[in-house]
Write a protein that binds this DNA or RNA. Structure first.
Length: 478
DNA sequence: TGAAATGTTGGGGCG
DNA sequence: ACGCCCCAACATTTC
């Protein structure tokens, strides 16, 4: 009756299965207070709008899952560190259980908090639930973080061991007396006036939605993953990124499921390995951000500090709004705005366009993605933008400039992806859909396309812009 | 996880 | 038969 409770602090581990901190909290045999503190700067940076949309639904799913197990989610809001200290004080909790966050600011906060609590006789217990390996655990023989992906990928799968898989607990013993908290509605995470999220309805945030997404992927996409993952006109990707970001599923579960399918002969082994390589890129980003905390704000290769980025508000606006006149770029930017997600191949194309064709600083793109993506993640977002810019670790060279026309023709050959997201071009035949300005006037007229009227003319000439970018690169070497 | 320029090769037309 | 040209296809280099 006088059992002191323990606190389970949910953060980026919004699931009940495969949750080591939860399992450990339950094993104490004490009442478990399941808490979520809404701190918009939980990972050190104000949460983007699309992420907030996702969090809203994921928290509701988690709260419902807890209710079904005799527990409930205690929601509070404010500075995470302060609120946890208050909660510990209020509940006289003996222990704090959490799964670690690896963003440098969050890591430092958690370390500080653990120290503070220790001084009050409260023990903090940290676990890993979100990355395949603890950042820093997989390193070179010299003890350095890997700066090249391929050897990192090899070492990761060589050294990291799968986490024990755990079913969600049937029952969670809650606190003896009811806890006060706030309603998820009051967090106002869902957009209002205007509600721009009407196109987000294909997503099912939460643990159950994550497991459905994994099953869909294993059944329908894994067998052709390595080729189809590059095709925005197909459902060839896993679409697991937001689920992974919020910790609704364990990356080890994903990797193991894919390899099990390969071992069972259901899919070629190479396909499963391709998926594992993508999980390893996520992991590579996490360990890079840990080793280089300024990855989201500073060029990893400081030679890029000399790059003469253009100040071009009109160009940036055309890019964000999907009005560049390059159909594959505009389709991607509109898909992002409408659904909170963009196909990975198209992310590379639009990023190359912003950085190289428009010669706009990659940080502008990083910021836009941060606000618009449901899978916005400090590590992946920073690493991938720097990868395209050429300023990152093991990055694509700057002179690798995507041609938005040939990329479109190669990866969206019939133009179906463009037609879906740029409906004003829908009637244009495949021959012209990726370069409408070269279409004969008769064809444009027949398709109801008026360049500069119903659809913009290209805001830059690619060949000219390409040379401008290469000149800008040369100038940094002077 | 590129593109474009440049270089090389080989088949076919043709004098 | 042979050399020459053209040019597509492929390979290499450069950014």
């Amino acid at each position: 009756m006088t059992d002191r409770p323990v606190i389970l602090w949910f953060r980026r581990d919004l699931r009940l299965g495969d949750n080591p901190a939860l399992a450990a909290a339950i094993e104490t045999g004490r009442p478990v207070i399941a808490a979520y503190i809404h701190d918009p700067k939980l990972d050190g940076r104000a949460m983007g709008g699309a992420s907030a949309w996702w969090l809203d639904k994921s928290l509701r799913a988690l709260a419902a899952d807890l209710s079904g197990r005799g527990s409930s989610l205690v929601v509070r809001a404010g500075d995470a560190e302060t609120e946890i200290e208050k909660l510990v004080e209020e509940t006289k909790a003996s222990d704090l259980f959490l799964n670690r966050m690896f963003e440098p600011i969050a890591w430092a906060r958690d370390a500080r908090l653990a120290e503070t609590l220790k001084g009050r006789g409260v023990q903090a217990h940290g676990f890993n639930a979100t990355s395949l390996a603890t950042p820093g655990a997989v390193c070179t023989q010299a003890g350095e973080p890997f700066k090249v992906f391929t050897p990192f990928n090899r070492a990761l799968w060589d050294q990291a061991r799968p986490r024990q898989s755990r079913c969600a607990p049937d029952h969670i013993r809650g606190p003896d007396s009811p806890m006060t908290g706030i309603n998820i509605d009051s967090l106002a995470l869902h957009p209002r006036r205007p509600d721009w999220s009407t196109g987000f309805s294909d997503w099912t945030p939460g643990e159950a939605g994550a497991l459905v997404a994994l099953d869909r992927f294993l059944d329908q996409a894994l067998a052709d993953y390595s080729g189809d993952r590059d095709r925005p006109d197909r459902e060839g990707t896993s679409r697991l990124s937001p689920h992974l970001h919020f910790g609704e599923i364990d990356p080890w579960r994903v990797a193991t499921a894919a390899r099990t399918a390969a071992e069972g002969g259901e899919v070629p082994y190479a396909q499963a390995e391709k998926l594992c390589a993508e999980l390893a890129w996520r992991e590579f980003s996490i360990q890079l951000l840990t080793a280089f905390p300024t990855l989201a704000s500073e060029n990893y290769k400081n030679g890029f500090d000399r790059m003469a980025w253009r100040d071009d508000p009109a160009g940036l606006a055309a890019w964000t709004q999907g009005r560049t006149g390059y159909p594959i770029v505009d389709a991607g930017m509109r898909q992002l705005w409408a659904t909170g997600w963009m196909h990975n191949r198209v992310r590379m194309i639009v990023a190359s366009f912003l950085i190289k064709d428009l010669l706009i600083d990659w940080r502008e793109g990083e910021r836009w993605f941060w606000d618009c993506l449901v899978d916005a993640d400090a590590a992946s977002n920073a690493q991938n933008w720097q990868w395209v810019a050429g300023s990152g670790a093991d990055a694509s060279p700057f002179f690798r400039i995507f041609n938005p026309i040939t990329q479109g023709e190669k990866f969206d050959p019939r133009g179906d992806y463009v037609r879906r997201w740029v409906p004003e071009l829908a009637a244009l035949p495949a021959d012209w859909i990726h370069r409408p300005w070269t279409a004969p006037p008769m064809e444009l007229a027949a398709a109801g396309v008026g360049l500069g009227e119903t659809y913009p003319a290209p805001i830059v000439d690619h060949a000219t812009a390409r040379n401008r970018a290469l000149d800008a690169l040369k100038a940094t070497r002077g």
